[in-house]
Design a protein around this nucleic acid. Structure first.
Lengths: 141, 141
DNA sequence: ATATTTAATGCAACTTTGTTGCATTAGTTA
DNA sequence: TAACTAATGCAACAAAGTTGCATTAAATAT
């Protein structure tokens, strides 16, 4: 959340998410600022196991999602991935877009393309997860 | 596989899948014949824990998928689900269709509707998983 | 600047889904 | 009926993610 890069009283803005700007929160926010592609929870745990506990990582990711800074989805193995939201808030997540995962290197990208979800008779559709798998540009050439 | 309901020499047909018509295989085949909606591995383990070991269940499901009798996909929690294929073989799985999971009762249905998958520049697309979540007909009313 | 409050953290133990190795059992073929 | 070996059960394991609780450290109040 942009909050941390300006200087607000956090408690006014975040009701259920992150309240304190701790070292761990800063490290993770920096990471998502730096890297535009999605990152899996497992990758973050490996990458920062010297800096913080895996429990802490899971908890911060959870809160950042509540805050509308990150959105989560499941990769090809059912493992959790996170990426920055664009224009979401704690009130509403409107980041329903497909994700592309390379079967070769495992990298995941958010796709801006819209996919038309079929309507289902008598059912109320809430969310849809679309994971497209294949070979990415780098692994293909 | 229809093989088991007629009388063939199995070894001619199944190369890497199921070779013997055991009690466990019969139970699971019956279950998928009986129920047209998808079934999660966990559900089968609960349902048949008196009849067979969970290892056996996972192994049989795996082989039935190899044989083209079942296809698998991940539900909303990343858990494995299986449903009957229509027209697939061990040589080729062409059952790429969306699935609908009810957030209320957890039930999963295969949808016959086609979804247009976006092309991604310079990438080769292989498979795509589409999981639509919402409230099903029964839970809605 | 220091004390107080309590959100956030680390740790260990746990839960759940799914997998592996190996001895034993039971379909299938000879 | 015997022989072969695929399939099974069991126990132990692996990996992702969660929970409870004592401790630490941000933010606020003094």
């Amino acid at each position: 959340m942009i909050l941390f890069f300006t200087t607000f009283k956090l408690s006014y803005i975040c009701v259920m998410g992150i309240l304190r700007k701790t070292k761990s929160v800063k490290i993770l926010l920096d990471e998502f600022e730096k890297q535009s592609t999605a990152i899996s929870a497992i990758t973050l745990i490996e990458r920062f196991h010297l800096n913080m506990n895996k429990t802490t990582i899971y908890r911060i990711l959870d809160k950042l999602e509540d805050d509308g800074f990150l959105h989560s989805f499941l990769g090809k193995n059912g493992h959790k991935w996170y990426a920055q939201c664009s224009g979401c808030s704690s009130a509403e997540h409107h980041d329903i877009h497909p994700h592309f995962q390379c079967s070769d290197c495992g990298k995941v990208e958010c796709l801006s393309t819209d996919v038309l979800i079929p309507t289902i008779p008598n059912c109320k559709v809430d969310v849809s997860q679309i994971l497209i798998q294949g070979t990415c540009e780098e692994c293909f050439s």
